[in-house]
């Protein structure tokens, strides 16, 4: 306990004179004429793909076909059919075999191609990371311009975990050569519904 007191005492003694927080004036922030187009362009530039859809029929079909073919897919989107609840309780070892995870995200961010996922939307924190491929559904009207707008809409402290996820897992640690599929999902498709 003494470290805590010592640190807090030293910080109190050494901190600079109080200054106010700045006002983040959102009128000074970039705006986009077409949020969906901007989102798609950026997502593609960071290795993901974006598909605009008008209904969920193709996605439902895809899910059914994969299931029928015996692929280990996990669905966490109510609108697509039955949720795979068993997966939420699986061990990492078991989840490592998941081929595709289908998730519904809260919103998309046009400036950086990311989506926000609450833990409840993942079912299991590990799922969006450990699966080989990731398919994410967002509503078109949920796309916001920037991160300032995104944090207005989400409550990042509401659940135990949440993530802004932008594109597939990647690395450039070997001679700055971009490689998609470092540890996490090898691909990300975002379906924009609306």
């Amino acid at each position: 306990m003494s470290a805590r007191e010592d640190i807090l005492k030293a910080v109190a003694a050494n901190k600079p004179e109080a200054v106010d927080l700045p006002v983040i004036d959102q009128t000074q922030v970039i705006s986009y004429a077409n949020l969906t187009e901007q989102f798609k362009t950026v997502l593609q530039s960071i290795g993901g793909s974006a598909v605009e859809i008008n209904d969920l029929s193709d996605l439902k079909n895809e899910l059914e076909e994969k299931k029928a073919a015996g692929e280990f897919v996990v669905n966490r989107i109510t609108e697509l059919g039955e949720l795979n609840d068993a997966a939420t309780k699986m061990s990492p070892e078991e989840l490592a075999a998941v081929e595709i995870t289908y998730l519904k995200a809260e919103l998309g961010v046009a400036e950086n191609g990311s989506v926000w996922l609450y833990e409840s939307q993942m079912g299991n924190r590990l799922l969006p990371f450990i699966c080989q491929h990731l398919a994410i559904l967002i509503n078109k009207e949920s796309i916001v311009a920037t991160m300032h707008h995104a944090y207005e809409k989400i409550d990042s402290g509401r659940e135990g975990f949440g993530v802004f996820l932008a594109g597939p897992s990647k690395t450039a640690d070997i001679e700055q050569s971009l490689v998609i599929g470092a540890h996490g999902a090898r691909s990300l498709r975002v379906f924009i519904n609306g």
Binding site: G113, S114, R125, F161, L165, A166
Partner: peptide, 17 residues
């Protein structure tokens, strides 16, 4: 850092699972 618009994962840890 790298010219990316955001890192692939910006993970918000709140509570232990």
């Amino acid at each position: 850092a790298t010219g990316q618009p955001i890192t692939t994962y910006s993970s918000h840890f709140q509570k232990p699972r």
